[in-house]
């Protein structure tokens, strides 16, 4: 998994409560054989005026000019500001996959749905809970100034605004450790690579017929 230490990027305000996973990535895109490539269909129904189909080239589809991420000033957004209960609905891991593929590295909201919150950490995406009043303030600042960037510092557990104001957030120690070091389950297991190799060497001695047989 990709590490998350510190990130600075353009912030965009998605001013809508209860954004569910079907809104984040509609069900017709789940048939894909990939975990990557969902970016063009992120927020498909909000983003485009037509109905999206799998395997369609999104470049020529009519964009909804009112949707925030379609506006010129928010191109290149990597920090998403959202409202309460973001990511509710189904457990599809395709939701964080789509956000990640689009280029979003952190989502800031007053609250998240549980499963979505968990799924983010498995995919190198940082969900940040800030008090409602602070989220409100960020929404106002973002809308007021074009090119507004936020810095998210996981080590220090703060979100820093362009004026230098810092908002502290909470994060579980174990998850923080995994994100800082880019460790997913595989990464954690590979920390024990020496033990695996030692076991394998023993096994090769004891049961040599299990090696190099399948060709």
């Amino acid at each position: 998994m990709r590490k998350f230490t510190q990130h600075t990027g353009i912030a965009a305000p998605l001013d809508r409560a209860n954004v569910d996973t079907d809104m984040i990535i509609p069900k017709q895109f789940l048939k894909s054989i990939k975990r990557a490539g969902f970016g063009p269909n992120l927020f498909d129904e909000l983003r485009y005026l037509d109905e999206g189909q799998p395997d369609q080239d999104c470049a020529n589809r009519p964009l909804n000019p009112d949707f925030v991420l379609n506006q010129a000033r928010y191109q290149g957004t990597s920090v998403l500001l959202a409202r309460e209960n973001f990511g509710c609905g189904s457990s599809r891991e395709h939701a964080p996959w789509a956000l990640d593929d689009f280029g979003i590295r952190a989502v800031i909201a007053p609250s998240f749905a549980d499963i979505f919150y968990n799924n983010c950490f498995k995919n190198g995406l940082l969900p940040i809970v800030l008090p409602e009043a602070q989220v409100d303030q960020l929404f106002k600042e973002v809308e007021a100034s074009e090119g507004y960037e936020l810095t998210v510092d996981l080590e220090r557990q703060v979100v820093v605004t362009p004026s230098g104001e810092a908002f502290a957030f909470e994060v579980d120690n174990f998850r923080k450790h995994c994100l800082l070091n880019g460790l997913d389950d595989i990464g954690l297991t590979l920390q024990h690579a020496d033990e695996i190799k030692a076991y394998e060497a023993r096994r090769r001695q004891e049961a040599p017929w299990l090696f190099d047989a399948i060709k």
């Binding site: 998994m1 054989i33 990939k34 975990r35 990557a36 595989i186 695996i196 394998e200 090696f211 190099d212 047989a213 399948i214 060709k215």
Partner: peptide
Amino acid sequence: SPQAFEGLRLAGRKPWRIDANL
């Protein structure tokens, strides 16, 4: 298996032991 292979690719990983798979 497709997302699993895709995951390997994205992380730049190789299978640990090819001869264990069919």
